[in-house]
Design a protein around this nucleic acid. Structure first.
Lengths: 229, 229
DNA sequence: TTCGATGATTTTGTATGCAGGATTTGTGGC
DNA sequence: GCCACAAATCCTGCATACAAAATCATCGAA
């Protein structure tokens, strides 16, 4: 599958109102998402400051914010690097998100009787299929992420929505995409077709069962691939 | 129930190795936990800097880290305040943590055959009963929090452990304690006695059912108390 | 009195300087 | 050639300076 890697956005001209810190945070997150910054990569404040045309102060504040988010790890007197996760940690993360997404799936499914939520879910799912048709791994994972975002928003639990949109969730989700090279993606999308259909049917219980079953299948594949690596 | 409110720790003398940023972060989190800083309270960088005997730079970095954690909210050109959550948001949060803790309960219960995990769970539960006996709301909630921390650690999912120890989880959990004044705490502890016994029995499924049932009871009480407020 | 304008004060946001701990580079011994 | 060690460099962490924005206080008019 293909992979995009564009340069980050320009240093911004006159977006007064937004602070430099948030600009730098967004830029770094964007860089991570685009693969410009990879896990374990060291982030040198002075370099970032020059790259983004700001001083080191807002860069340091941005790095601390991202450290709070869990995207960056800070070591005393050794600065910042993009957080690196082992396969084992990603397995744990996936097991964790299963619990989260199950809640989202359950809440959203119970609202499929209403017109607008239903249309929104369908719209987001179409984007998943579209990315799948293009065989673009990153876009596919991002579209699936957006699909779950939509489910969570529709579900109506604000904390769930807040949590799932945090950068480190996006980041870890993306890392999952780069994992398990020989993965059976055909079965993956088939699972989601079933899940999506069940969600639309409004049957919360079955939707959760299908979703949990899918995650368990992914987990078993990841655990298998863990041993050789 | 009683409530503690001690001043924060002294500005530290020679704890070289730990950065001032982490000192300030810990101090603020500690202040939140002790009730020195309350939700909505404005945090003025210069004041904090003076209080803790440091300059504004590490304070600002600490505030950004806490903003990333979700303990503090930053508004452009208006600085930082302790994040304030509505009852509705706390309801959502509790519904969310149910999903998380269910995972922890399930994983930990399946390890109750082993000696050390079992002893640790019992030890942490004893602390819960001890705080209950003292009728100290905050200590009680903190002990319950520590109990769940132990369950999560024993469960073996590192991400779950990592997540549940984040300051904002501690913070929101504490906010729950201040909620619902006329709460039926007797039923609350009774529920936990049952949950704890079931966890020790090693029956994952029943433990999860009891725990979920407890949370649903809490949620229904919170939702009821929501209307008048 | 109440409202709004205006200036003083506070506070934030950013840049910069510098000491000290890492890291790298260079050098000599084995 | 390879490792130990020392010097040079780099980088971080913290303090400080200053401009711009927000807040507050004062005052005058409706």
């Amino acid at each position: 599958m293909a992979r995009s890697a564009l340069p980050a956005a320009p240093p911004a001209e006159d977006d007064s109102g937004a602070s430099l810190v948030s600009f730098v945070v967004d830029s770094i997150v964007d860089g991570v998402m685009r693969g410009r910054y990879v896990p374990g990569q060291r982030l040198i404040a002075a370099d970032l400051a020059e790259d983004y045309g700001v001083s080191r102060a807002p860069v340091r504040e941005a790095l601390h914010m991202l450290a709070g988010e869990g995207v960056v790890e800070l070591v005393a007197n050794r600065g910042a690097r993009i957080r690196r996760l082992s396969v084992a940690e990603l397995v744990d993360f996936l097991e964790f998100t299963e619990a989260i997404c199950v809640l989202g799936v359950r809440l959203a499914t119970s609202r499929m009787g209403q017109e607008e939520p239903r249309a929104e879910v369908i719209r987001h799912y179409d984007a998943v299929e579209e990315a799948w048709a293009r065989r673009h791994a990153r876009d596919f994972v991002v579209a699936l992420y957006q699909y779950h975002i939509a489910l969570n928003r529709i579900g109506g639990n604000r904390f769930l929505e807040f949590f799932y949109e945090r950068p480190y969730i996006r980041f870890y989700t993306l890392l999952l995409a780069d994992l398990v090279p020989g993965f059976n993606w055909d079965k993956y999308i088939d699972n989601y077709r079933l899940i999506h259909a069940t969600i639309l049917s409004g049957d919360s219980h079955t939707a959760v069962v299908h979703f949990a079953s899918h995650i368990r299948w992914v987990l078993s594949n990841m655990r298998r691939s863990e041993a050789p690596a």
